[in-house]
Design a protein around this nucleic acid. Structure first.
Lengths: 336, 336
DNA sequence: CTGAAAGCGCTAACAT
DNA sequence: ATGTTAGCGCTTTCAG
């Protein structure tokens, strides 16, 4: 019991296989009558083209990969939503490629992508910043677009954000509220934006004439749990700060939980701000003051860049996406 | 400039293409020496097999789809994590197939899956409960496994949960705390578990001799926003209830927000419980009392069922997954 | 243990 | 406007 092929359809319609192919691919130079007959025959036989045969000869899989580490779930969700949004009404499909640790497995990533036969990939951080991956991708001729890279911007189409400025702005806002004792929760050290955001914070501190105390910087991993742990450490100290800058929203929410555990009210006794404007920032109470990184829009734009390349249009080389300071209720002037 | 093929490798190693194929696929009857030479040649040429050619002849794509609607992001995240967990160290890849509305597009879903050339699919609700989809899948010979179906359990391997009992338990718990004025936020009406959970609530009400007042039932869509809206409606009424049962965690968190908006403290003035034990239930304050549905484990098990079928092992016909009442801090006895 | 031939289902290039 | 021929790169016979 074989599956029905283009030849079967041709036989039923009384035409050659090639003509069937023409009709099904909307190629020109086919008479309306034949078109009709072929369509009817294909329907009657419940014919579905074999995509492998097509891919083999066309050298195109119509699959796009999304490469990410697994930092915060909310970030990944935004990312996927953005890619899928752009893929609506396209023939392309999304294959998700989560990498355990880009840092450790960089050498194998492209092999993985290659063997997945992807036409193109959207690279999220930190893969979007990895020289080896970028190089191998070029060698393997897999099209790509990058989200929030910080280095080698020319190497491939990039969607940029000014992490430094965004961090500076939110830090300046907190300082402007009157805070002087401020702790920081860093993100995953293998992600480039961690350093960029750190730099932005430092600039704001410097402009305000504040010292950045290294004993007030806690490590984190962009996850809720790491934020919770960092928050507990910060708040356990004798000289408790009046505000916390977290490098993403998940960690900020974790720090909020740490504050709650010891009955510290937010924002009255402790101000906390995040980064990214993930969905989680909108559903906590108080809602989180944060700085919006348009992850969704970047994912849409990056996917467009990939598709453009696949269809031989010139992709935008780079797009600068704008951040926005979102003032909500989790930060207020320090308690007198 | 052509890509290197199995023939090139064979030429370099001084063997036939078939022998290269044998080595690369770990087939028996190849001498160690030849094996060595072929491996070396493949490495030297940076050879990667063309998966389309393989798929064409083997009739296997090594791609597994995950079909879901887009209810709550936290649910989808758990689902994906589960599938990906089982796929670690497997050759299979995950293709995500979000469907806008299964209800409206059921007829096209299988066509979509078919043209994506998936070897198998994991069906999340409500697709997991749709007769048409199940039937067409069988016709198209696409293997599948189901998550939380409620009907036609024999039709395909199923991962079951007892939604009715779970709902009954959490409702009984709330009633047991002393609540008598209880509102309900329903889930998406096209999802089968919505009715099941409703039934469970009703059973608990009945056992306690309570009336279920229809004017205390608010519609929802399994999203935070719908929970927020429903919460506002419920709390705006003159005869405000003392507890809210939400059919998932996202809606429960939305209802919490509605309570906060009018300064109602939880759980002192209003108890709220959810359903599912999504990540969101752990990161809110107070943490949400809920009933755990092992979505992750079901996704793992469903993926295993698909893989088993693809590798000609007999899959488990059905697995019953257990729910757990998770008592956290969002519900307490009603205020005197 | 190894190789030659055939063909998976489709489309590009070239006829007609 | 339609058909023929020749592969795409691999694996499955079936011989040696």
């Amino acid at each position: 019991m074989k599956r029905t092929t283009i030849v079967d359809v041709g036989r039923l319609a009384g035409v050659s296989a090639k003509t069937v192919s023409r009709v099904l691919n909307d190629e020109p130079h086919v008479s309306a009558a034949v078109k009709q007959r072929v369509r009817a025959a294909a329907d009657a036989l419940d014919y579905h083209p074999n995509v492998f045969a097509q891919a083999l000869v066309r050298r195109k899989s119509h699959m796009i990969g999304l490469v990410y580490e697994n930092p915060s779930p909310s970030y990944v969700v935004e990312l996927q939503k953005g890619v899928l949004e752009r893929l609506i009404n396209e023939r392309y499909r999304l294959v998700v490629i989560p990498i355990r640790s880009v840092q450790e497995n960089a050498a194998e990533v492209v092999g993985l992508l290659r063997s997945a036969a992807l036409d193109g990939v959207v690279l999220a951080p930190p893969a979007s910043d990895h020289p080896l991956i970028l190089n191998q991708l070029k060698e393997a001729r897999i099209r790509c677009a990058r989200i929030a890279p910080t280095r080698m911007i020319e190497a491939a189409p990039s969607n940029l954000v000014d992490d430094v400025a965004a961090a500076r702005e939110i830090a300046a806002y907190v300082i402007g509220l009157g805070h002087r004792e401020i702790a920081i929760i860093r993100g995953d050290p293998t992600h480039p934006s961690t350093e960029a955001r750190m730099l932005g914070y430092m600039q704001a501190f410097h402009q305000a004439g504040l010292d950045l105390r290294f004993d007030r910087i806690e490590p984190g991993m962009f996850t809720f749990d790491s934020g919770l742990a960092a928050g507990r450490n910060i708040l356990a100290r004798a000289d408790r700060p009046t505000a916390i800058l977290a490098q993403n929203d998940d960690m900020a929410v974790g720090a909020m939980m740490a504050a709650r555990e010891i009955g510290l009210s937010i924002p009255e006794r402790l101000s906390i701000v995040g980064f990214d404007d993930s969905e989680v920032s909108r559903i906590t109470w108080p809602r989180l003051t944060t700085v919006r990184q348009p992850v969704f829009e970047m994912a849409v734009a990056a996917t467009e860049m990939v598709i453009a390349q696949l269809e031989d249009r010139e992709p935008l080389a780079r797009v600068l996406h704008h951040h926005t300071l979102l003032i909500r209720e989790s930060a207020a002037p320090p308690h007198a």
